[in-house]
């Protein structure tokens, strides 16, 4: 199973995402934004960072990168695509996911270990969770406020397309505490928090058991592998 991670100018978490893929026992494949080539991968991760310095709008310029034509095409054919943070912003800008991301309502960059509730487990990236499961993974963003019109919010809620909700404190003013969403088919998922930073004991969030032992993020990647094996 080969999972590609696309590097854009200004990507920061591409290496961590590649490492997360390896920890999940898939083969990580580095992809380049400027190439019209997915190198035959089975799934794609658009990583976090600040592509093009967040110029214009976060993720807006990257959403028009050459490789995005192939990503959009593959997503349309059902390939699992995960957008993390800046990658989530790209997926909304590319209209693969609903809504948009604006500056945090608190006006500052926020970094914390964030509790989430998994709302939708029928997706390529969440099938290893149980419905309603509470997980903790790192969050770090300045423009993570998820917004959409009331009608659009009602629609995606009704269609079960809210994948994750913030638990406890809402860190960025996201409407209806939405942390992540999925497309209708469930193969494209985007979220602001970072699963790739919670995939190896010793490097994740603190848990009741031990410091830095949280690996809730690993399930995103093992879910994708399971989804691909089921095809």
């Amino acid at each position: 199973m080969r999972i590609g991670v696309v590097t854009f100018p200004g990507s920061l978490d591409d290496r961590d995402a590649l490492r997360a893929v390896r920890l999940a026992d898939a083969e990580p494949v580095a992809l380049w934004h400027g190439a019209h080539d997915l190198d035959g991968v089975d799934a794609i991760v658009l990583p976090g960072g600040f592509s093009y310095g967040d110029y214009l709008r976060a993720g807006a310029i990257a959403a028009h990168a050459p490789i995005m034509a192939e990503v959009i095409d593959a997503a349309g054919k059902g390939m699992p695509v995960l957008g993390i943070c800046n990658g989530f912003q790209m997926l909304t800008e590319a209209h693969l996911l609903p809504g948009g991301l604006i500056r945090n309502d608190v006006g500052t960059f926020v970094r914390r270990d964030q509790a989430l509730r998994v709302e939708q487990t029928d997706t390529a990236w969440t099938n290893g969770f149980t419905a309603g499961q509470e997980i903790v993974i790192p969050l770090k963003n300045g423009e993570g406020g998820f917004i959409a019109s009331d009608d659009e919010l009602d629609r995606i809620e009704g269609e079960g397309r809210v994948a994750f909700r913030y638990l406890g404190l809402n860190p960025n003013g996201s409407l209806r505490d939405i942390a992540g969403v999925t497309n209708e088919r469930g193969n494209v998922v985007g979220l602001m928090p970072h699963p790739e930073h919670a995939t190896e004991i010793g490097f994740g969030p603190d848990t009741a058991d031990a410091m830095r032992s949280g690996i809730d993020g690993l399930t995103f990647f093992t879910s994708a592998i399971r989804a691909l094996q089921a095809v």
């Binding site: 604006i102 500056r103 945090n104 309502d105 006006g107 406020g145 917004i147 019109s149 003013g173």
Partner: peptide, 10 residues
């Protein structure tokens, strides 16, 4: 107009 403008608020 109907959506938040955190920058303007700041």
């Amino acid at each position: 107009a109907e959506l938040l403008d955190p920058q303007g608020k700041a």
